[in-house]
């Protein structure tokens, strides 16, 4: 095998179909960028889930004077005994890791601290509006339903609130983005594969004289096909590298921007970014080589 010969053949092929080659590179780059961004979002969601699942709590709000719950309106705020009963019952549950009580006064204090910058809101609220509550940390956040069903409707309990619901709404948004990126990436990948097939076909056609002679003098199929395969692979590689630039941009502009906006405490480590980029490039090269190979089997009969 003469490397120089093969390399010059590839170069000639890429140059001869310059416009097609550029089309291939652009399509591959876009599809890989979308694929990579989808993957980044996926990683981010996984990581945030892991981070938040350990921290989110279930809050059991107790009745107060303004509760809308009919049960509360009937019985009024919980008695000392009911409150103690709820606490003991909670602590007895195997799913529960810890229980913290927050009195109405503490709740008001937290509320006014949190919205210090928004005095209008604080003024509009009344200390009596805020209910007392139990903050419950679970061993496994998935056990929320068991806790909820045990306490919902219990005397003195207004409602049971799962913080996960807010988080899930956010995760749903990210998953939607991710799915959209994957779908567009898939369409683009199909387009890229067809384009590569066509490019290789053109390339095989414009070099039919050479390949015909190669066949006649007994060059091996591998030797005849290698320049075309590598032509596809190199287009895929360049497309992958361009796509990686988009992926890096997506990470620093899109994800990090979102992070600032939503203030999530987890940053995707660079190793994840590198993993996504490598995966995208490998995928690009494999995809292009495979498309070239299939196309060659049709247009370069040996």
């Amino acid at each position: 095998m003469r490397a120089q010969f093969v390399l010059s053949e590839i170069w000639i092929g890429l140059r001869r179909n310059l416009t097609m080659t550029i089309a291939v590179i652009v399509t591959v780059a876009i599809s890989l960028a979308l694929f990579g961004s989808g993957l980044l979002i996926n990683r981010q969601v996984d990581q945030m889930r892991g981070f938040w699942e350990g921290r989110i709590q279930v809050t059991i709000y107790l009745c107060n004077e303004v509760s809308a719950n009919p049960q509360c309106q009937e019985n009024g705020p919980p008695t000392e005994e009911q409150r103690a009963q709820i606490q003991t019952d909670l602590e007895a549950m195997p799913q529960v890791e810890s229980v913290t009580y927050e009195s109405a006064e503490e709740a008001w204090q937290h509320f006014s601290e949190r919205f210090e910058s928004n005095p209008a809101l604080v003024d509009a609220a009344d200390p009596e509006d805020l209910p007392e509550s139990f903050r419950v940390a679970l061993h496994n956040p998935q056990d929320f339903n068991q806790v909820a069903s045990a306490f919902e409707g219990a005397p003195g309990v207004d409602n049971v609130y799962d913080e996960r619901q807010i988080l899930n709404r956010f995760f749903d948004l990210l998953s939607g983005l991710q799915n959209a990126a994957f779908i567009v990436a898939l369409v683009q990948i199909v387009a890229a594969a067809l384009l590569i097939g066509n490019t290789i076909r053109l390339s095989a056609y414009s070099r039919r004289r050479e390949t015909g002679i190669m066949r006649l003098v007994g060059a091996s199929n591998f030797y005849i096909q290698l320049p075309f395969l590598l032509e596809g692979a190199i287009a895929g590689l360049i497309g992958g590298i361009v796509g990686s630039i988009f992926i890096v941009a997506a990470k620093f502009l899109l994800l990090d921007g979102m992070q600032d906006y939503f203030q999530f405490a987890t940053t995707l480590p660079i190793s994840e970014l590198i993993y996504v980029i490598l995966l995208s490039i490998v995928l690009g090269v494999l995809l292009c080589s495979l498309a070239s190979f299939i196309s060659l089997r049709r247009y370069l009969r040996v």
């Binding site: 010969f5 066949r215 006649l216 003098v217 007994g218 030797y223 005849i224």
Partner: peptide, 30 residues
Amino acid sequence: RRRIGCVFQDFRLLPNKDVFENVAFALEVI
């Protein structure tokens, strides 16, 4: 096919290669 040489009516030379390169091509590709 390496044991069989072929000649055609239309020569089938590579127009962008000189005589030496055309002949050498048959050996290069094997």
